[in-house]
Design a protein around this nucleic acid. Structure first.
Lengths: 249, 249
DNA sequence: GCTACTTCTGAGTATCCTCTGAGCCCCTCG
DNA sequence: CGAGGGGCTCAGAGGATACTCAGAAGTAGC
């Protein structure tokens, strides 16, 4: 919710934009309107220009006219499937990046061929942070990084290499589980900003997660044990509001 | 609530307006007329242009014609719910900010993803200051800040970073509870202006709070202990009238 | 299909916050 | 000089919030 844009403007996370400085363009293709809208609003908030399409044929038409830099593409579509969409789009936009959305039990072997081409995929239900991270990765590798600043996040003496999935505090390696890593990444992308539990749930947990904010407390507790134990704490509780990650004053 | 407008004209708080200099437009949607009017009057004092709507269908129609920058939107509406309203409005106004109003006991069936796209929510019963603060935050992040002045409030050597919820006096950190923070924020947004206890109650405490003005005295006392102890006082009592926050002459 | 790990639920505990009530002080005014 | 009103502060009850543990359910890897 609060403040990604200004965070990007003033924070440490590198922004992404086209070579000419105009905003990155992303086409979102999913036949479920609420999910497409959810994705669109998150990506829009990232400062990008977004269009949505609900069917394969609309997607192809929209891509032709919109000329996106990236496409978030559901494999399963009412008319023809995502791979077919990609085949048609690639003829006019050979360099477009694609992030596929797939069902968990969907045909894995077909996916494998995809990633070879530099594209990527996430399985439904996904977390929004994961979609964002993968999209950023695709765009960065496609040469859309504004600064040459790499993939490293830093808060105080805590560092995170997103690609290598490596976290260190004062040089010492810290092992994190998948969820712990996502949570810490979200916090490191929004340092010095108080994040509510609802905000964290919405971003870090899968979009269909029905549980309570209590899990956030639990994972904060895990993180503290691994990141803050015996050191100057970086994770702080703001009672009644949320949590904030910040370097010691 | 007397006279906020002139406070803004002379105060230090950064104003918000559209890129072309015209006032920010906000649509308030709630089926309870008295609450909608309460909100409308407070937001009008902020210098914004306000319309209200009591049902979802009226809200959609009004949004189309009014083209608001932000919408304060009750989730529970007589015809169709707030999410549906948003979905319809977003197709024509993709960048509109939304502040949802939700009942406290509907926290159980919390709606996923509300905060993900930069939108926000407050639970009923809320305090008007909270609604204002969140709305300002949404609008600021949507790029509606007049000055580039960030999120910082200043009165004398007292500073407040609203996003980080950090308060300092002369560089030294001051820890405040949620209510203390809200009270101080209200005073810092209205410096050199005498605020009556009734006024403070109406703004800082929830609108259904039944207690006495005595709590205001109590919290002023808390604040003084944390903010003014051992220093030139910033908080002054105006006997029989209220309190005023101002830098030393 | 078994094992190891991760994730989540629930309960208990500790801590913190908010508000009420009471007593005191100070100022004002008779 | 005394009474009364307004304001200040202390202390404590009650409630809300957050933390942690232990174990169940789910997932992945062998």
């Amino acid at each position: 919710m609060e403040g990604q844009p200004s965070a990007r403007a003033t924070g440490t996370a590198p922004g992404l934009q086209r070579a000419d400085g105009s905003p990155v363009r992303v086409l979102v293709v999913d036949d479920e309107p609420s999910l497409a809208e959810l994705l669109a609003s998150v990506l829009r908030y990232e400062g990008w220009e977004i269009r949505t399409a609900a069917t394969g044929s609309i997607a192809v038409r929209t891509a032709r006219e919109f000329e996106p830099d990236a496409i978030v593409l559901d494999i399963m579509l009412p008319d023809f499937d995502g791979l077919e969409v990609l085949r048609r789009v690639r003829t006019m936009l050979p360099h477009v990046c694609v992030l596929f959305l797939t069902a968990r039990d969907s045909v894995q072997d077909r996916i494998n061929g995809i990633t070879a081409g530099g594209d990527d995929y996430v399985t439904k239900p996904f977390s929004l942070e994961e979609v964002l991270a993968r999209l950023r990765g695709l765009l960065r590798r496609a040469g859309m990084a504004r600064a040459s600043s790499g993939t490293e996040l830093t808060v105080g003496d805590l560092t995170m290499d997103e690609d290598a999935r490596e976290v260190r505090r004062g040089g010492e390696r810290i092992d994190l589980t998948a969820t712990e890593f996502e949570l810490l990444r979200f916090m490191m992308r929004n340092p010095r900003r108080v994040l509510s539990k609802a905000q964290i749930l919405d971003r870090v947990w899968n979009y269909d997660f029905g549980g309570q904010a209590h899990v956030v407390e639990l994972y904060i507790s895990y993180l503290r044990k691994k990141v803050d134990t015996g050191r100057e704490p970086l994770i702080h509780t703001v009672r009644g509001v949320g949590y904030v990650l910040k370097p010691p004053a």
